[in-house]
């Protein structure tokens, strides 16, 4: 398989973005480190969501569970395991959890799957909350966590990894199989696609990076609080970004994350209510007028010009 020009453009763009992210601290100061961290985090989360939900059409509204499990793993093992073990372990715990729930969860489709994933994430949230209360921990403080820059660099690596993964999967037979499942699951079976195996693999794969992201964010905030790391708002934001950016193409999550992160930077402190209203308005506008998101508009624009 030859590398296409569009692939080169994508990887070059990604490298420039990553390079810029790595240098914002020295260029613009600490405040922008936080913004860049935020941006990279949402790219990694939304890209991972798109890998499964964007390609298969199984809309998960509970991806915060992977983030939360990763954060919990790092918080519990803090000062016990070295961080280079603990953070990937967070990813692993999230992936194993996804693998465990995949077979029963992926038996249902459409709105049932949406509700089920939301329910599972709430169930895990309250289970861990009760466990922590039982253990006598209302929250955990993480003293001596690495600097914001160190967290940022790792997060950028995760954002890049998730984007490259999405791009590679999308153009592989596995990725086409996932898209075929979205088209028609019965036909996918008749073609000989191992539908169950593909769905389970996709779901598990989409949990790993969010688990690591959660672990990193626990280090960033230096404390762990169950209701905060399992906040369903994180799941909602992921889906919102995927809808605005478009979720069947690796460029979509990047555009969606950029759009919302910068919109919130612009308005959050000065006009927080306006931000929420605009967010709702944009969401409705995209769902109704541009269901394939910014990336869909980009494609349409590109086609218009190449004709």
């Amino acid at each position: 398989m030859t590398v296409l020009r569009s692939d080169l453009a994508f990887f070059a763009g990604l490298a420039i973005l990553a390079g810029f992210g790595l240098s914002v601290g020295s260029l613009f100061g600490t405040y922008w480190v936080i913004v860049a961290l935020n941006f990279a985090m949402w790219i990694a989360l939304t890209q991972s969501w798109a890998l499964f939900s964007g390609l298969t059409g199984y809309i998960s509204l509970g991806n915060v569970v992977f983030y939360g499990l990763g954060a919990y793993t790092v918080a519990v093992s803090f000062k016990v395991l070295p961080l280079w073990v603990a953070v990937p372990m967070g990813g692993l715990v999230a992936a194993v959890f996804a693998l465990m729930i995949a077979v029963p969860a992926l038996r249902v489709r459409g709105p049932y799957f949406v509700i089920l994933t939301f329910g599972i994430s709430e169930l895990v949230k309250y289970s861990i909350l009760n466990l922590e209360t039982y253990l006598g921990k209302s929250s955990r403080l993480l003293f001596g966590a690495p600097s914001a820059e160190a967290v940022l660099y790792t997060m950028i690596a995760l954002a890049v990894a998730s984007s490259v993964l999405m791009r590679l999967v999308k153009s592989s037979t596995f990725g086409r199989g996932l898209v075929a499942i979205q088209g028609d699951e019965t036909s996918a079976e008749t073609v000989g696609i191992p539908v169950t195996r593909f769905k389970v693999m996709g779901f598990t794969l989409s949990a790993f990076i969010p688990g690591m992201v959660g672990g990193l964010m626990a280090l960033r905030s230096t404390y762990f609080e169950v209701l905060q790391v399992f906040n369903p708002f994180i799941s909602f934001t992921i889906v919102t970004m995927a809808i605005i950016g478009g979720s069947n193409d690796a460029r979509g999550p990047i555009l969606g994350a950029a759009f919302l992160v910068f919109l919130s930077e612009l308005l959050w402190s000065s006009a927080p209510r306006l931000y929420m209203i605009l967010l709702g308005a944009f969401l409705i506008a995209f769902v109704l007028l541009a269901p394939s998101g910014l990336v869909g508009l980009l494609r349409k624009y590109g086609e218009g010009h190449s004709k």
């Binding site: 086409r176 199989g177 008749t190």
Partner: peptide, 29 residues
Amino acid sequence: VEKGVVLVPEGRLVFPDLTVAENLRLGAI
């Protein structure tokens, strides 16, 4: 399918979001 028993289902259920070539390639999965 691997053994060689292949159904072409009723109603022409092709995969709309994949190209013709991609549809065909998936047939040989």
